[in-house]
Design a protein around this nucleic acid. Sequence first.
DNA 1: CACCTCCTTGTAAGCGCTTACAACTTTGTA
DNA 2: TACAAAGTTGTAAGCGCTTACAAGGAGGTG
Lengths: 345, 345
Amino acid sequence: MAAHASPGPAGTTIYSVADAAGVSIATVSRVLAGSQVVSQRTRDKVLAAVDRLDYTPSASARSLAVRQHEALGLVLPELDGPYFSELLMGFEEAAADLGLSVVLSLADRGRGLDATRFQRLAAGVDGLAVLGGIVDDEALRRTARQKPLLVVAGAETPGVDRLSAENVTSSTELTSHLLGTHGRTAPVFVGDPDIAPDVRQRHDGFVAALEAHDVAVPEPLRVGLRESDGVAAAELLLARHARPDAVVCANDETALAVLDRLVDAGLDVPGEVSVTGWDDIMTARYVRPGLTTVRQPVRELGALVARRLHERITGVDPAPQDALATRVVLRGSCGCPGDARRTRP
Amino acid sequence: MAAHASPGPAGTTIYSVADAAGVSIATVSRVLAGSQVVSQRTRDKVLAAVDRLDYTPSASARSLAVRQHEALGLVLPELDGPYFSELLMGFEEAAADLGLSVVLSLADRGRGLDATRFQRLAAGVDGLAVLGGIVDDEALRRTARQKPLLVVAGAETPGVDRLSAENVTSSTELTSHLLGTHGRTAPVFVGDPDIAPDVRQRHDGFVAALEAHDVAVPEPLRVGLRESDGVAAAELLLARHARPDAVVCANDETALAVLDRLVDAGLDVPGEVSVTGWDDIMTARYVRPGLTTVRQPVRELGALVARRLHERITGVDPAPQDALATRVVLRGSCGCPGDARRTRP
DNA sequence: CACCTCCTTGTAAGCGCTTACAACTTTGTA
DNA sequence: TACAAAGTTGTAAGCGCTTACAAGGAGGTG
C-alpha cells in the first residue's frame, strides 16, 4: 500500500511521512489536524518525520477531501488610488481571520474580466466578491447560482446580492454645506452618473440638496474618474461664460485635478469657487487648500464583504444591513477655515 | 458507476454532466479541455449539458489530477502607498497572462506573517514571492526547499533567491546631483539602513556620493518609512543648531512629511534646504515644490517576479538579470526649476 | 482469569478530475 | 468483400487527503 513513498523533497506526500514515521496515513492526518486522540509518542514520531521531510500537505488534495476550497475570490479593477487597496486589505484581513485564503483577480484597465478568467476564479473558491461593473450580469448570475456571490458598490442586479457604502445622504449633506454655510448658488457636478451606481447616487444626493435649496439643477459634467478626466473637466469649466461657484466632483482624483487646474488658471479656491471630492485619499490632505471630501469606511466594507460571504458559505443567515455610513471631511477647498491636513483617520 | 449524479446546482460534478449528456466523464473532460478528438455532435451534447446544469468544474480536483495548483502566492505587507499596489498589479497581470491565479496574503501591520499562515499559503500554490522582511528566514528556507520561492527587495538570505530594483547607483546619482548641481554641503539621510536592505542600499549610495565629493558622512536619522516617521524626523532636524541643507529621505512618504513640516516651520525649500524622496508616488507630483525622487519600475518588478517564478516551476533556466534600473525624477524640491508635476509615467 | 470498556491505530472508501490504454466504429482501399 | 487505418468513445487507475468504521491492545472489574 505504500508503493507511493516517492522520495525527493518535491514529492513528499502524506504517504512518505507515514512511512518515515512508521504509522498509517490516517495517523499522520490526525496529528496534522491536531486531533487529540493520538498518543503523545506517536505524535512526536510523526512530527519528527514531518520536520525531517519538510512536508507540506497539498491544499488541493485536502480541498477535494473536505469539499471546501477554504478560499474566497475577489475581483477588482486596477488598484489605482487607495480605494481598492483599502477594500482589499479589509477583505484579506477578515478572510485571514476566518482561516480563508484570498484569490485575487484584477480586471484590465478598460475592458472587464473575460468570462473564462472569471469562471476559473470561481472554480477555485467557496464564494466571491466582485466590484460592480467589471463582470457582465449574465456571468454574474450564472455564478451566483453556484456559490455565494456579492457585488460591491455595483448596480442592482436581479438575482445577485449587493453591498456598498452610503452615498446619497452624504452627498446631500456635502452639497447643502456648500449652499448653506458657504452661500454657493451655482454648483456643478463633475462625473458621469451613468458610469457607476456610486456616481449616480452621489449625483442624486447632489440634486436633492439643490432642490431643497431651490437652486436650479444643472446638467452634470459627464467625465470619467481619473486624473486626466478632471483636467478635461476643468478646461470645460474654464471655457464657460457663466462659471460655477462650486464644483462637486465624483471622486478625489478628479477633484484634485480640477482644483489644481483652476488654481493654475488664476482662480481663487475657495474664494471664487469651492471644490470637493469623494474618498479622502492621501493627497487630499496634502494639497493647499486641503480638499473637502467624504470619507468612506472602505476597509470596513471589505471586511464586511468577506464576513458576509463566509456567512453564506456556512449557511448562517446574514444580517440585513446593506450600506455603511460615510462621513464628510471639511477642509479648505470648500471655504472652511480649518486646515485638517494632519488629521489622520 | 454513475451513482454520483447528485442533482442540485451546488453538487454538479463532471458525473452529472456526463449523465445528462449521455457520455462518459472522460468525454466531458475532453470537451472542456478543448481536445479536438471529440466529434462535433458529442461536443454539442456535452456543452448543452454543461450549460443546462451551470456546471463549474472543481479547481481542486483538477489540481490534484494534474499535480499543479496553477497558482502563484504573494506575500506583501499592508498596501499603504502605491508601491505595493503597483507591485501587486504587475504580478497579477503577468500571472494572469500565464494562466495562473494569484493567492494573496497580507502581513499584519508590525508583526510579520505567522508560520502557519505562510505554510497554508505555500500549500496551495506552485511557487511564491515574498516581500523581504515579512517572513522569517527559517520558514523561508524551509519553503524554498519545497517549491520555487523568490524574495522581493529583501535581505540576502542563503538558500533563497532574491530580486529587486537597483538602489545604490541611483542614490549616488541623486545625492551627487544635490552636491554638484545644487552645491549642497551638509546633507543628511533620513531612514534607518537597518530596517530594510533597500534602505541600506540607498544609504550606501548616499555615502558613496559624499565620499566622492569629500563631504563628511553624517549619521543617518534612523526613523521608519511612514508619514509619521517623517514628521518626527523633521522635528529632530528643526531642533538642531547646525541644520542640514539637503535631506535625502528613504522614501516619498517620509520625504513629503519632512517637506511639509519644514515649510510649515518657515524654511525655504529648496532655497535653504533640498528634500528628496524615493518611489515617485502620486502625491510627489502634487506638492509644491514638486518632490524630487526616484522612480522605480515597480510594476515591471512585480511582473518579472511572476514570470521568474513560472520559469522555475516549469523548469526553464531563468535569465540572470537581478536588478531593475531606476530613474531619478527631478522636480522643484531639490532646487531644480522644472515643475514636472504633470509629467505622467 | 474471563470479560468489558476505553484508547489508540489502521483499513478503506471516497472527494472530482485527468489521461493512458483499450475497444469499438467508420471510412478507405485492395 | 475483407482488412487496415483513422477517428471516436469508454474504462479504470490514479492524484493526496479526510474520515467512518473496524480492530487491536491496555487496563479495570467481578
